[in-house]
Write a protein that binds this DNA or RNA. Structure first.
Lengths: 221, 221
DNA sequence: ACTCCTGATATTGTTAACAATAGTGTGGTA
DNA sequence: TACCACACTATTGTTAACAATATCAGGAGT
């Protein structure tokens, strides 16, 4: 905790805080005082401020002047808006992936899906997201889409926010088996380099994900 | 320049720097030294650092450890990626706007287009973007779309980046008249609450904008 | 009991000095 | 001349102290 090498500190602190936030260890609305964190990480307030600003930049934290930062809390309306955004981006990702995919990329997807079917057989209703970066279907597609801007946005902003959204609203059961089937259909469209179909299927996939989330919330209360 | 009221300073500095960047007053690649800016704004390095980090967050500035910040420079490939992102987002905006538009919203668009036709008649080939926020077709649509996340992303990140991109690459002539016609078609789709058509037309509108930009770059060199 | 004011406390915004790193130029050597 | 080592300068990262603001508790007045 105490052996940072200068600028690494803010990166480390940022990642640490992000981890705590998206894992639900810090609850939405919880205040993130600078002095607390500073003493906690054995560092001055400067790097803490930097890290908090970065977290605010990626939407994991809200911060107001003279008030400070707190873990962002998503309303259901914001959740809907978020999924609408995700629908647009991931649709474009699927379209671009279908456009760019050559033999190598198709095999990569194929291998990934073969791995996933194993996991699904063991945990049929896992949420099926908290995997390593390069083992996630959506992120692999984003890589194949070969658009660094969109890839960045998805990996560094939308995905962390999505995890926070889920951990905030106590999503218990995923829809692993169904999601996997949809992934397969999307993959088939990509194998055929069918941009429009890939885009459409991905959009529906995201919509279905939102429906599951939304229904889960309605049922809760 | 010397009468800030605390936290206002970083907002003011941020906006000032942003203005200088997107107007082309600061050229791409130009270094933004902290001490220079600090003395220039009569403030210490702290707020300057904050402002630079925020600028980096919205993609107007790149910053590396121990090296500092410099105005972002877009390659042509990044320009393409940028327009792909914009296509996805603006398409979704048009779709949502078509879905949400009631009588009031339609009249708002109608009035806006009536204003624009006046401008076009005077300046048929103006770039037709550097208008006030609430007088811009795309931003008004984003407002009607009623998705704060997407609206934020467009107004605070994509649009500033777009202006930087244009000022970077010396876009001389716009395509005001043609763009206006396309706006009208999109508006008609929205009047009919035809989500799919509005989305499609908007996507083509953005693509056409990219083509104009791209051809202009090719011609230059 | 309730509201409003006031002062104490805690927290954030800002500053200037210090530490460490990147960039630069000079001199020596082959 | 080409090249490398080394010191020097300029710039960023970090820290601790100071300034200003928000929050909260307690009390006076109704």
């Amino acid at each position: 905790m105490t052996a940072f090498k200068r600028r690494l500190s803010v990166n480390f602190i940022f990642e640490q805080l992000q981890e705590h936030i998206i894992s639900g260890q810090y609850r939405p609305g919880q205040r993130l005082g600078e002095v607390d964190l500073a003493t906690q990480y054995g560092v001055s307030r400067g790097p803490i401020r930097d890290a908090l600003r970065r977290l605010a930049g990626v939407g994991l934290v809200t911060s107001a002047a003279n008030i400070g930062a707190q873990v962002r809390s998503f309303s259901l309306a914001e959740g809907k808006a978020f999924y609408q955004l995700r629908e647009a981006l991931e649709g474009q990702v699927a379209r671009l992936a279908a456009s760019n995919a050559g033999e190598q990329e198709k095999q990569k997807i194929e291998r990934l899906l073969k791995e996933h079917v194993q996991v699904i057989n063991v945990h049929p209703d896992r949420a099926y997201l908290q995997e390593k970066k390069d083992r996630d279907f959506h992120l692999v597609l984003a890589e194949i889409a070969a658009n660094p801007l969109i890839q960045n946005l998805l990996a560094n902003e939308l995905y962390p926010q999505l995890m926070l959204l889920r951990s905030s609203h106590c999503v218990v059961k995923g829809r692993g088996a169904q999601a996997f089937l949809e992934h397969q259909r999307i993959a088939e469209a990509i194998y055929a380099n069918d941009e429009e179909l890939a885009c459409l299927l991905m959009q529906r996939h995201v919509q279905a994900s939102w429906q599951t989330f939304f229904n889960g919330q309605q049922g809760d209360r």
